[in-house]
């Protein structure tokens, strides 16, 4: 029995949650994948995020659902990463290299992807979160700011700083 109290947002239906999932699955998978480097783990996290949304469907508003979801996704990904480091297992994959047609190009792409991965992993957590969300989620800076709990201006400056650090680390490639 879903009763809506006065002043409360309407509860998200399963259909609405499925629609949001279809819209956000790919960008969210990419954000999480860039933290975990494992497609299976990343998909697990995305699923968990939406199960949590289901649990909070009565309180999460449709207008703010996107930042809410990304905030949960980043936290879950960080927890998994911490856990993986703690137990010493990290199964890294090289999905980025699959697009290259021949072996030589594939090797070059793989090396480039590995360098980029290392550079992103080398960023401070705050900069990395801002960078991944602005580059991969498709959210506006104010929305990213809501997800991270910071003003939109700070999002822009962190993204800028992250890009500059990547350029330094990659020698102008990024």
């Amino acid at each position: 029995m879903a009763t809506q109290r006065k002043g409360e947002p309407p509860e998200l239906s399963q259909r609405a949650i499925e629609e949001i999932y279809q819209r956000l699955e790919k960008p969210m998978f990419n954000v999480v994948y860039r933290r975990l480097r494992n497609a299976e783990e990343a998909q697990d996290v995305v699923q968990e995020v939406f199960l949590r949304l289901w649990g909070h469907r009565a309180t999460v508003r449709l207008e703010t659902v996107e930042p809410w979801l990304y905030r949960v996704a980043l936290n879950l990904a960080s927890n998994r990463r911490r856990f993986a480091r703690l137990w010493g297992w990290t199964r890294l994959e090289g999905v980025e290299a699959d697009a290259a047609p021949n072996a030589e190009e594939q090797l070059a792409t793989r090396q480039q992807a590995a360098r980029l991965r290392q550079a992103i992993d080398g960023l401070p957590e705050k900069l990395r979160r801002a960078l991944l969300l602005t580059e991969l989620s498709g959210m506006s800076h104010p929305k990213v700011g809501r997800a991270l709990g910071i003003p939109a201006g700070t999002v822009a400056s962190r993204r800028h700083l992250a890009m500059r650090r990547l350029q330094e680390l990659l020698g102008g490639e990024a």
Binding site: E18, Y21, F29, N30, R34, V46, Q47, V95
Partner: peptide, 21 residues
């Protein structure tokens, strides 16, 4: 969206799995 960070395709069957869960 980024042009230097390619968007990867998530594993298939995500929505069906979510519905089941």
């Amino acid at each position: 969206m980024s042009d230097w960070l390619p968007l990867l395709e998530p594993p298939p069957g995500g929505l069906a799995r979510l519905r089941a869960q």
